[in-house]
Write a protein that binds this DNA or RNA. Structure first.
Length: 567
RNA sequence: GGCUCUGUAGCUUAAUGGAUAGAGCAUCUGACUACGGAUCAGAAGGUUGGAGGUUCGAGUCCUCCCAGAGUCACCA
């Protein structure tokens, strides 16, 4: 049986923070960020004025002052001791005096060893609060005029989305939001694996076992409906294979081919794919279906369209519930032949080489990678050929200079190779390609295995967290006065916040355990906890307004801040 | 075996090469007839897998080792 792995077929996943995907400019327009870069500039100027040499701005470390010391921001003065030829303490004192004199917001300072603690004037914080922190789009950077693409989700059309897709989708979605906030124009895309042998299996399964039922006639969500027939096909195949093993033919194959170290069960387990491709009538039917599809057979294409549409309707529903969307969906049925022209051009440029059997390769050994086939000896594409072509297509479509691929860490090597090839082909966006790799999601009981039926379905999971939120709200009466519709909406928001925060708070690169119970815990570092804090703050503000307080510059001027109010 | 990733309190985790490794859960002490209690304050809990090295300074960088995972297809 063909494994047919695609972008997120299994739940394997490792990764880089968005801050590494893009090099965020330190210069930003909110005072909070701005004061750090201003401080850096002033420190650089100070070092130059005092010691005659200017350090690189980005090497000036400015941190928040630890709470046991007095001050708001701390400059690390160790790096300047060399140019100054003085002890860290002396440098700190001289630099502190300079800053206090030259920079209006520095109200005072103290020096502890190599750390210069700066006290920032209350006026700065008050201005910051009124003008920026309370603004609607706090943190939003002005457009930087650059475009970036984020690819995420990218499922197969033979099964519903599962927990692995949820991590992928939430990482992709939050990455795209972060990039937008950083000033990029973001294009959200996915590549759907809508073709191939696996899709033919669900088509055959539907033909054989569905009796012309539809999602509508059975009241089943489309992706789940089609998934049932993929499973039905697999079950029928298993049965066929089991029966065949007992036939004279099956036994003779076993006797001819068995390795002495294998018992019969182990042999047949390993032989399954070969059986599917060589002897299986169901396998032959599936391959025949694939041939008809590739030949453009009208009935086959119509069937394929019908089933895929059901699946897309189901996926749309799941995406809607999760609150994510896409600007463009790429389909492998459109892209699986792409890339051959780039291979041809690469051959002419000498990037690739042709072997005697006609296959085309690239030698990446000098990049600590291996030789990689990019075109089979029969001239057909492999997985990476398609990715080469699709990258170019996306560049042509959107003119993006960066592309982020949110794909599990099992494909780390694939993307290393892909990006290296794109560089050697001289593609203009090649330096901007990034694999946002993430680790597998395990369950408390171990890893998800489709064969053992332990795969957590995405829709079931969303239902579960919302259900937990509903249970929680029953014990309280805060929502009692609301209409059912309003209450359900709040419950849905709480449940999803729980799920999203639980997934997003873990570093992508780390494999994580998803505990459904813990994820919907409302205490501690959770989505609902943050929501609650927000709601209470809003309540304070609302009541303040009702009593006639308005948060304007005039009201707060001259107010002496408590230390805790400046963090 | 080669390459890549991961290893931090009992558990889940954070930390652009900067000060005494920061949180949450659980545990233990306390507060409150509730500014939306899904609350708040506090305590205890660590040889950052191990050993070397670079550095004024290492959880972070380098080398080796240990443990786990992924990957090494004319599959996707």
């Amino acid at each position: 049986m063909a494994k047919g792995k695609t972008r997120v077929e299994t739940q394997n996943f490792a990764s880089l923070r968005p801050s590494k995907i893009i090099s965020l400019p330190l210069q930003t327009h909110t005072p909070r960020m701005n004061i750090i870069s201003l401080l850096q500039e002033k420190v650089a100027a100070g070092v130059l004025a005092l010691y005659g040499e200017s350090p690189a701005i980005n090497q000036i470390a400015i941190n928040k002052t630890r709470k046991e010391f007095e001050g708001d921001f701390t400059v690390v003065t160790f790096p300047f001791t060399r140019v100054a030829g003085k002890k860290p303490e002396e440098v700190g004192a001289e630099l502190g005096q300079y800053l206090q004199k030259e920079f209006q917001y520095v109200a005072g300072f103290n020096v502890v060893k190599g750390f210069l603690n700066l006290v920032i004037s209350d006026n700065f914080w008050l201005d910051f609060l009124v003008k920026d922190a309370l603004a609607l789009n706090y943190g939003q950077q002005p457009s930087n005029g650059r475009k970036v693409m984020v690819e995420y989700s990218s499922p197969n059309t033979n099964k519903p989305l599962h927990l692995g897709h949820i991590r992928n989708i939430l990482l992709g979605w939050s990455t795209s939001r972060i990039l937008e906030t950083a000033g990029y124009e973001v294009k959200r895309v996915q590549i759907v694996n809508d073709r191939g042998i696996a899709i033919c299996k669900s088509m055959l399964g539907w033909q054989r076992f569905a009796n012309d039922s539809t999602p509508a006639s059975t009241g089943t969500k489309g992706d789940h409906f089609v998934g049932q027939f993929y499973v039905a096909f697999e079950r029928a195949f298993q049965e066929e294979y089991r029966d065949w093993q007992q036939t004279a033919h099956g036994q003779s194959v076993f006797n001819d081919r068995q390795d002495k170290s294998q018992d019969e069960a182990a042999f047949f387990k390993a032989y399954k794919d070969a059986y599917f491709n060589v002897y299986s009538p169901l396998g032959a039917d599936a391959r025949d279906m694939l041939r008809r599809w590739e030949a453009g057979d009208t009935d086959t294409i119509a069937l394929w369209r019908k089933l895929n549409q059901w699946v897309y309707d189901g996926f749309d529903e799941t995406y809607r519930r999760l609150g994510v969307r896409f600007d463009k969906i790429y389909y492998e049925s459109d892209t699986y032949l792409l890339g051959k022209d780039l291979i041809q051009q690469g051959l002419e440029k000498g990037v690739f080489y042709r072997r005697d059997d006609g296959s085309v390769w690239i030698d990446l050994t000098d990049a600590k990678l291996d030789h990689k086939v990019v075109l089979r000896s029969d001239g057909t594409s492999v997985y990476i050929t398609q990715d080469i072509g699709t990258a170019r297509l996306r560049y042509d479509d959107f003119g993006v200079e960066k592309m982020v691929y949110v794909v599990g860490d099992e494909q780390n090597y694939h993307f290393q190779v892909l990006f290296e090839i794109m560089k050697r082909l001289g593609e203009p966006y090649a330096q901007g390609l990034h694999h946002l790799s993430y680790g597998m999601v395990d369950l408390p009981t171990g890893r998800m295995k489709s064969r053992e039926g332990t795969v957590v379905d995405a829709d079931d999971l969303v239902d579960e967290v919302i259900g937990e939120a509903r249970e929680g709200s029953k014990e309280r009466d805060a929502t009692a006065e609301l209409s059912t519709e309003e209450r359900e909406n709040i419950i849905r928001q709480i449940g999803l916040a729980a799920l999203k925060y639980f997934i997003i708070k873990v570093h992508p690169q780390k494999r994580m355990i998803f505990d459904p119970k813990e994820s919907v815990d409302l205490q501690g570092q959770t989505g609902p906890y943050i929501q609650n804090a927000y709601v209470r703050i809003q309540s304070v503000l609302r009541k303040a307004q009702e009593e006639g307080y308005a948060l304007t510059g005039n009201d707060v001027k001259g107010y002496a801040l408590h230390t805790d109010e400046k963090t």
